[in-house]
Design a binder for these strands. Sequence first.
DNA 1: TGTACTGTAACATTTTTAATTACAGATGAA
DNA 2: TTCATCTGTAATTAAAAATGTTACAGTACA
Lengths: 135, 135
Amino acid sequence: MNGQFQIAVHILTLLNQEPGELIASEYIAGSININPVLVRKEIRNLRNYGLITSKEGKAGGYSLGRSPEKITLGDVYKAVYSNPALGQAKNLPNPDCPVGRQINQHLNELAADVESAIFKQLNTITLADFSLKFK
Amino acid sequence: MNGQFQIAVHILTLLNQEPGELIASEYIAGSININPVLVRKEIRNLRNYGLITSKEGKAGGYSLGRSPEKITLGDVYKAVYSNPALGQAKNLPNPDCPVGRQINQHLNELAADVESAIFKQLNTITLADFSLKFK
DNA sequence: TGTACTGTAACATTTTTAATTACAGATGAA
DNA sequence: TTCATCTGTAATTAAAAATGTTACAGTACA
């Protein structure tokens, strides 16, 4: 997997530091130490999930889409989630082999169980909880 | 992440189908539909964890390193585990930012919690359990 | 109307993953 | 003893994915 989740949590943590204020992508990028365009890209995604709101134009920027008590790290994972935690096999197993024929189905069920264990864990932590660590 | 876990489980499942017999990398590669050298590479890794034994030379091949009741999918995950489930940020956050300064530490703790949730889930399933699905 | 932002496309670069080739070494059988 | 069939592994190439960069249109405010 990639660093999207970390970036997303970092962004949200920053926004939560200055409630009500609008923060620019340049500032955020400076804290994470990545390119501002990447920040804006990730924010586009998080905004689609309602986790962030944005304002264009001069003195524009970003702020939380809802209160940090109502954002769990599971929500973030869901927004960012593209690659399953167990990885994804891209080969097509041999359909003439009894194992190859059905293994993908079983691996997918397994992946689903693991995902749900991850959500269960991450949903216990809100952004508010996480941000407390920075006080 | 990549498809290593799936490949590892596929290999082990195949080996468990023919207890006691030696199976060649070519056959395994044919079922998974990948290159035999990749199979041997992954097996080298699994062998380091005691999950597989191998025999060189003519009529050589691979078999399980211990009974399938004693191999959990958590063992497999551990052997394959290189990339954490949440991904890994490769940027160095800005040390002059209160958030950037300490976020990696907190993200790592978070990652550890998630890993342990994954293990908890995967350790409930043995290779024997998983193989039952193919009968 | 200029300035400071976001939004996004297009492209380049870097990193990671997978495939391929090649061959040495082991083992067993003719 | 020598041939065939396997593993073990290094080295290289090719393909895919992630990340970085550049460029610029659009929006909002002063």
